[in-house]
Design a protein around this nucleic acid. Structure first.
Length: 186
DNA sequence: CAGTGGATGCTCT
DNA sequence: GAGCATCCACTGT
């Protein structure tokens, strides 16, 4: 597998999101192919970028191809990849992946055995891959990150996003059709 | 299964 | 001071 092209993220999050399904994400060698993502753009009331730049969302207004990591509900971390429609702040939330590499490290970090539950949600995924605010703003084409292009063309399904109190009806969630590693079916 | 509620900390109003 | 881009344990069918 080869690294993603450098300009992969220099596009709208709506174009990038479905193409991330099947891309392998590794952090310090731990991870696997992405099976679920959600897109967020600047005109989106559910997006952290909606109300303009703040200290927290600064990476979203920075160059594409970098990580945006935020704390969720005071407990979990969530990982986004920053995209760039020219002049806009956009990102794709990585919600789930199929555990493939570093299974034992994932199990130890999660305190779980079941493979299906290791990375089936944004908070779980960050715990399994040990992603924290220390990764906020880091480039995705340099260690500890590794993104490997997919080899085939997976069947991508779309659905509504999860856990939102506004703009919950937008069909901006993408996943590998039928995968048992999704946070929820599509 | 489905539904409910608590944990917990930070950001922005 | 309110409100989270969540997860888990617990309840009740």
């Amino acid at each position: 597998m080869s690294p993603l092209p450098r300009d992969f993220f220099a596009r709208s999050a709506h174009d990038v999101a479905p193409e991330l399904i099947g891309v392998t994400l590794l952090v310090d060698g731990v991870g696997g192919p992405i099976v679920e993502v959600e897109a967020y753009d600047q005109d989106d009331p559910a997006s952290h970028a909606f109300r303009g730049p703040t200290p927290r969302n600064a990476p979203m207004f920075g160059p594409p191809g970098h990580a945006y990591v935020y704390r969720s509900y005071g407990i979990h971390w969530c990982l986004n990849v920053v995209c760039e429609e020219p002049g806009r702040a956009e990102a794709v939330l990585i919600r789930a992946l199929r555990p493939e590499s570093g299974l034992e490290r994932m199990r130890a970090r999660r305190g779980l055995e079941r493979e299906r539950d290791l990375c089936s949600g944004p908070g779980k995924l960050c715990q399994a891959l040990a992603v924290t605010n220390e990764h906020d703003g880091l480039p995705l084409d340099a260690p500890p990150f590794e993104l490997l292009a997919r080899t085939g063309t997976p069947e991508v399904a779309a659905g509504t996003r999860i856990g939102l109190s506004v703009a919950a009806d937008r069909v901006w969630r993408y996943g590998l059709a039928g995968s048992p590693f999704l946070s929820r079916p599509l």
